[in-house]
Amino acid sequence: MSRQSMRSNDPKKVSGELFTLTYGSLVAQLLKDYENVDDVNRQLERMGYNIGMRLIEDFLARANPGRCYDLRDTADKIQQAFKLYLGVSPSIGSWSPGGDEFSVVLETNPLAEFVELPDHCLSLRYSNILAGVIPPISHLRILAHLPRERWKSLLTGLRKDIECSSIVYSHLEVEKGMFNE
């Protein structure tokens, strides 16, 4: 053999990159297929939903998380699942007084690691797939959405300063009982 194996890279990181890049090509393809950015957002959410349906099976088998007794338990499990599947630990916060609304905030978003959105895609919710994943895994009637303005403003911030490209925030707000529209 002329060559030793030189995978000095952390295999865990590499498979994360593979996922990120695959997701990127998928979004690029969707943008090519649909003229309307809103349709892309919707499609991404639908895909997320399908992934969530499979993911919850995998998660139950793998992590044996036990029963959720209230929404705080559910929030914990969501946090645990993010850690397991995306390798990032989101923080859970902004509980509403009634305890039926909370935010999942990702400090770093692995999906957006290599991403720079062009100007005509500013209304694209790039990580919308995550918003789709949460409802089926949490088994609650939940509306998860990524507030657009926030993503946009953070993105604008990002564009001004290339240095902070690793700090891409995304913000998920989860509200109970808003699923039937």
Binding site: K12, S15, T22, Y85
Partner: peptide, 13 residues
């Protein structure tokens, strides 16, 4: 666990 994500995203694609 991350491998599962790649499988899922591929299935969706």
């Amino acid at each position: 666990a991350e491998e599962a994500m790649f499988d899922f995203i591929h299935m969706e694609a």
